[in-house]
Design a protein around this nucleic acid. Structure first.
Lengths: 335, 335
DNA sequence: CTGTTAGCGCATTCAC
DNA sequence: GTGAATGCGCTAACAG
């Protein structure tokens, strides 16, 4: 009885009478519509797109920027239509993710957030012919990217501060590799980092301010920003940085809190910059930051997925950002 | 060649020589392992659990409490193992969700967060024999619940404030129904609400303080809390509430911000309470609030899912909360 | 221990 | 416009 299939999918030429008869029979047999699994197997489409998430969901999406990207992505996928399957990876342990990827039925996979430069998941998915889309990582010719000019944007921030006269600059990076502790990082280590986005932003700063003190965080949240800020600011006044460049607005929010706690005025005593351009209702100053539209970024990723699923060959694209001058940057204090 | 299946699933008794031979052949043919779809169809298991999310992902998980629940749930499901499929519902429009549910292959569905009391998705899923687990909503005999004594907990907060001598109490509720505007709500409307959790908390307050002014928010975030607080506090001083009970800590955070803005000291001029017991790094006072362990709640939901999938019959359970006295409550100002 | 057989539930042919 | 046959790719059950 293929007619039933036509009735439920609603795409065949079926007379109203027959349709009614089919529906009545379905009712009778308590048939709740086609089995999605069988339908997917037959059609080769699942209506599901995987999203790889580094670390715990609470950590990853505790950063409002990441959440906004996810939101935009979901919104765009909804139009395909496709639902989002969350595929968390324990940082530094790929085994669970690979098992999930081997067992999960997805039409495509998105690496929407920061992740390792080299990812064994790529081989697995490429082997299955599942299209992938990434935002910075993993780096692989088989994975088209939506790229941000991280290094250039970050360098622009550093240039702003150097131009204002700052010479002692602190930099707070996102994690450069899985499972790192919060703490200082030697500039030489930066180039070897496994996470490209943090590395690129740090390199941008070092391009312009090679003597910047770099402190790495474990995750992007306010508490980590505070911790890193205390490491940078908890030194004698004459070696204390007069400006801190944070790789994320939530990290910068932590810096602002520590500054207030230490009695440092922003920007008179300390300049602070962020990255992302978040609108945090609980931060009262307007942060100097690199604005990127997270929602639009997610949507752009979703559009790339849609294109890949429709069979188009998707190419690496660039996504715009711009520096926004806020109230948290100014010339260094005259001693 | 079922031997190949045994090799890949790793559960059959296969000699090493044969296993090697199979792997070699797989390599040769560029076979990337079993097709998850076919495997799922055969085994009747997908390794995927759906989570219904009300509203945009950004709105739903912008509340750290909701995110923590999701995190705990994901963590527990990971042990099954199962991955999370996000199933967003546009508030007030079930059609997309129902379509997704009809097309998505899931082993179970969790209603982890607030949602409508009556949900057409229940009929659909019950028809398919897919187990459901809920946390407050939907209310249906076919759906076992993990319940919080919302009304009692809320009443306890109100009793605390009344006991301190407050007579003019304001209450800020979560949305009581889809697509509501932020604004005052008549107590009579509360009992008719479509969202049970907000309704139960409001009823708890009204049980103890029947004259409380109730203001409803659109979503649980700081900005909505601020908006609601301005409605409650923006009246002549003699009719201004001396205490505000918020149904969530993020809403309470908004109240604290407005209080500071209006020059009201907390708790001398205004007592403020929340719900959830979040640890918000950017709120400096210790809020008086109803603590519930979101992570544990998510895990408990995950455990219920695991039980349901193992064929056990899952019963409705209760989840504990407790009132935590903080620094934001005290006697009302003596005029 | 290994190979063969059948069917999971559907959607797509193709005859009628 | 309708019904009957085939196979999507796998794995459980069996026979060797």
């Amino acid at each position: 009885m293929s007619t039933a299939s036509l009735v439920f999918s609603g795409r065949g030429p079926v007379s109203d009478a027959t349709a009614a008869r089919v529906r009545a029979a379905a009712q009778e047999l308590a048939y709740a519509g086609p089995n999605p699994l069988a339908s997917s197997l037959r059609q080769g489409r699942t209506g599901t797109v995987g999203v790889v998430v580094e670390g715990r969901l609470g950590d990853a999406f505790g950063d409002p920027f990441a959440l906004t990207v996810l939101d935009g992505l979901a919104r765009e996928l909804d139009a395909i239509p496709a639902a989002l399957l969350l595929l968390p990876r324990e940082p530094g342990d790929d085994s669970r993710l690979l098992a999930q990827l081997g067992a999960a039925a997805v039409d495509a996979v998105v690496f929407a957030l920061c992740g390792p430069r080299d990812d064994p998941a790529v081989d697995l998915l490429a082997g299955r012919g599942i299209p992938m889309i990434a935002a910075g990582a993993p780096v692989d010719p088989r994975v088209p990217q939506l790229l941000v000019a991280e290094r250039a944007a970050s360098a622009e921030v550093a240039r702003l501060l150097v131009g204002l006269g700052h010479t002692r600059i602190g930099h707070i990076t996102l994690p450069l590799a899985p499972r790192v502790p919060t703490g200082p990082v030697a500039p030489a280590q930066v180039a070897l980092a496994s996470y490209p986005d943090g590395a690129a932003r740090a390199l941008g700063v070092l391009d312009v301010a090679p003597d910047a003190r770099v402190v790495q965080t474990t995750i992007a949240d306010v508490a980590s920003g505070e911790q890193a800020a205390r490491l940078l600011l908890g030194v004698p006044a004459h070696e204390r940085p007069t400006a801190i460049i944070a790789q994320s607005d939530v990290l910068a929010a932590g810096v602002l809190r520590v500054a207030a706690d230490l009695g440092l005025r922003v920007p008179e005593d300390l300049s602070v910059t962020g990255f992302d351009g978040l609108d945090l209702p609980w931060v009262d100053v307007r942060l100097t930051t690199v604005v990127q539209d997270g929602q639009a970024r997610g949507r752009a990723l979703g559009a790339m997925v849609a294109a890949a699923l429709s069979g188009a060959s998707v190419r690496t694209t660039h996504f715009p950002t711009h520096l926004r001058l806020g109230e948290t940057t100014g010339p260094p204090p005259t001693r």
